[in-house]
């Protein structure tokens, strides 16, 4: 494997966004890119990352290799990379370590780290391609704000999506709160759009602790997309350049 990123920033942010949800995971490398799928310990949430080969310049991977990595250790190594550094990830066949090289833009500093790998026997879930009943795209910062505000009211949020908009409702000991985002196109700045497509109304409850955790990915993308169907897990997607993505799946709470 040899994969070079123009800026370490992307990889630093991805790892930062998932390290509190999953501790040990395999980075599955093959000629289409670097993928990761891992569940949290309680098996309620799942993270699915794809960094396509086109995300790297260049990308080369001659055979499929899983790189079993402790994300706490990887975070320690990535601290040594500045956001603007060129990052190269390298590994041999049947590796004991993954090699990370950080180069300053002006090429006067090269840092090189070897991170020990681990054998991880991970349960892999097959996630079918799903036609969701409702899809809502919104500014990622707005979603983060809504989740963190409602977490102060309750540990759970009900998300209701209708043609009129998407509503987040929390009921807690101190009272209730709700936030509605209406569909809206900002002609000057499409990053501010709220776009809803719906085949049937959806109402589901989720843990805000998990949702606020997913929001650690906010810096990766201006927009976030929520995909919902009744009685299936929510998908929260942060789309990245070159068809790469960071997706979180969250099982709904059981109703009354």
């Amino acid at each position: 494997l040899e994969a070079r990123l123009e800026a370490a920033d992307l990889f630093k942010k991805v790892v930062e966004a998932i390290k509190d949800l999953v501790q040990h995971c395999n980075f599955d490398c093959n000629d289409s890119g670097i993928a990761l799928q891992a569940m949290d310990n309680s098996h309620v949430a799942l993270v699915s990352m794809m960094l396509t080969a086109d995300t790297f310049t260049p990308f080369r991977c001659d055979r499929n290799i899983p790189l079993g990595i402790d994300l706490t250790s990887l975070t320690k190594v990535l601290r040594a990379a500045q956001s603007s550094d060129i990052l190269t990830i390298k590994s041999e066949d049947a590796p004991d370590v993954v090699n990370l090289v950080f180069e300053g833009k002006d090429q006067d500093r090269i840092s090189e780290y070897d991170l020990k790998l681990m054998d991880i026997d991970q349960e892999h879930l097959g996630i079918p391609d799903t036609e969701y009943a409702a899809t809502a795209s919104m500014p990622a910062a707005d979603f983060k704000r809504i989740c963190s505000d409602l977490l102060l009211i309750s540990e759970a949020v009900s998300i209701e999506c209708t043609k009129e908009g998407i509503t987040f409702k929390a009921e807690g000991d101190i009272g209730n709160g709700s936030v509605t985002l209406r569909q809206h196109s900002d002609l000057e700045n499409s990053d501010k759009n709220v776009d809803i497509s719906l085949t049937e109304p959806v109402a589901l409850s989720f843990s805000l602790k998990y949702l606020t955790g997913f929001c650690k990915a906010t810096g990766l993308s201006n927009q976030v997309r929520l995909c919902l169907s009744n009685d299936v897990p929510l998908m929260v997607e942060y789309a990245l350049a070159n068809n790469s993505y960071l997706r979180f799946y969250l099982a709904p709470k059981i109703g009354d």
């Binding site: 309680s42 309620v44 879930l125 097959g126 843990s207 299936v232 897990p233 099982a251 709470k253 059981i254």
Partner: peptide, 14 residues
Amino acid sequence: QNHQHILQGFYEAA
């Protein structure tokens, strides 16, 4: 209301 489903109920192990 405090109980959460787990993902295996929805997705098969691949």
